[in-house]
Design a protein around this nucleic acid. Structure first.
Lengths: 143, 143
DNA sequence: GATAATAATGCAAATCATTTGCAAAAAGAA
DNA sequence: TTCTTTTTGCAAATGATTTGCATTATTATC
């Protein structure tokens, strides 16, 4: 059995993934724990570096491959903010949009029922059905 | 003097760019005309192919370089929709957001004063000042 | 219009983020 | 433990975009 320190509640996720036919490898377990543990939106390289601290043998390809699999299974969400590389966050189920701090790169999550509703209206008026959307605000702290 | 067929009103833009210290080269003139002429959102390669029809000597690097310069001067806008390469559109001055048809790749422009206002409110509440934003709806035609 | 100074071009090579082929290693089922 | 199949690490490939450099073209000037 692996160690029993708090893993941020990844056990059930692991079970779900295993149930979906995925193998829970040492590297996947490490990555899952990092995702569940952090509250930021790391990119593949950041994830790789953090993972490498726990398991120096892990490779960047594995991080990318794992991200792809997790995304397909709906376990994480991938965001590609202006400019930079893709950044990931565990899918908590509740949809939200993002405000990116242009100075620090920090990502703040928010949610607006009213905006969501307006988006639907607009799409409908144009004869479309929304499959997904992306709303990102880029700004700086007001002093 | 070059030919005098309709150029979609690029003359004033050319003048403005020249005034900003830019040289209006044969290739830039071609690219400008294409941008002004089409009402879609072509990517660099599409732009390159269209330009090559009028001037086979043009290179893809020049297209990229021109896009960068035009963007810096505010003459065009660059959009990077999910997945694909950057796509460009002449900056008409009026801000708008985009609805991308997932089946055809077609881009429909729209504008919602109410959404803009809500975005400002949200940013303000979070202690931020919006510098730019991006709102993209991805959907399919409702049948 | 000729000329000089400087910006822009084409090409190939470089870069960045990400993906992929492949042989070796590990996971899960039996 | 054994077998089958997935996953891994590594290196090489990819796709989009950028860049170095020698050459060419544009524009201000005479």
């Amino acid at each position: 059995m692996t160690d029993r320190r708090d893993n941020g509640g990844t056990d059930d996720l692991e079970a779900a993934l295993r149930g979906a036919g995925l193998r829970i490898t040492r590297q996947r377990r490490v990555i899952l724990a990092i995702l569940a543990g952090g509250d930021d939106h790391p990119d593949a390289l950041a994830l790789f570096r953090r993972a490498a601290r726990q398991d120096p043998s892990i490779s960047l390809s594995t991080v990318y491959r794992t991200m792809k699999v997790l995304e397909e299974r709906g376990a994480i969400q991938r965001h590609t903010f202006e400019g930079g590389p893709a950044r990931f966050e565990p899918a908590d189920g509740v949809h939200h949009d993002h405000l990116i701090d242009l100075d620090s790169g920090e990502v703040i999550e928010f949610r607006s029922e009213r905006i969501e509703k307006l988006q639907d209206e607009i799409a409908r008026e144009l004869g479309y059905e929304i499959v997904s959307h992306r709303l990102e605000l880029y700004g700086r702290r007001r002093k």
